[in-house]
Nucleic acid binder design. Sequence first.
DNA 1: TCATTGCGCAACCAAATGATTGCATATATT
DNA 2: AATATATGCAATCATTTGGTTGCGCAATGA
Lengths: 106, 106
Amino acid sequence: MKRDVFQALADPTRRAILLLIAAQAMTPNAVAEHFKSSRQAVSKHLQVLSEADLLTQQKNGREIFYHLNPDRMTEVEEWITKFKSLLATKFEQLDNVLEQLKNQKS
Amino acid sequence: MKRDVFQALADPTRRAILLLIAAQAMTPNAVAEHFKSSRQAVSKHLQVLSEADLLTQQKNGREIFYHLNPDRMTEVEEWITKFKSLLATKFEQLDNVLEQLKNQKS
DNA sequence: TCATTGCGCAACCAAATGATTGCATATATT
DNA sequence: AATATATGCAATCATTTGGTTGCGCAATGA
């Protein structure tokens, strides 16, 4: 399943997991040891993060290491950048925003 | 109610609303005109964004203009920055991450 | 004054979410 | 071969979420 990156980042536990894995690739059990959450709960979070392409898996024997995929985070950065540039130019840009949002109209 | 900024940004419609209002402060009706969503649905989104302190209200007669609060977005930026700096230094920083996540342990 | 407009709020509903439990499978260890 | 370990997957459940509907209230306008 394809998932929205922002939605994947919405959960604070998932953000913490990302920070952990950003520092070092880890197995689900290793991740779970750092949280109150159970292994299964963590496993579900890892699945969500994987579906958002924020993580990749690397099987090694019976262990599965989850690695970070840094590319996907740039998508968030780009949104923020767009947002900020919009702020900078304000009113002048309203037409452009309207144009870009056109497909969301009824 | 206090709300998580990331959670507020999780919904694509809310992100679009933020872009609109970033370009120009608007009333709920004005916002709703740009979406398929009903006024009440948009109004709820505005409420969520307000609870996350991403928007402020300014009453003017019977109209309420929603303005952007750009400060709150920096919180997201800071998380991303932290994330990226973690990536840059990788393994060396693992201890720091563990230290920061300590309070989330059982 | 009376109708209309802009808006928030509460109740309600279907769908999604986060978590738990139980089980199956593959790999490792004895 | 038998057991233990690491993990995923499905079912289930309570809670949250996004949306609709209906109502009430303040401000505008006739």
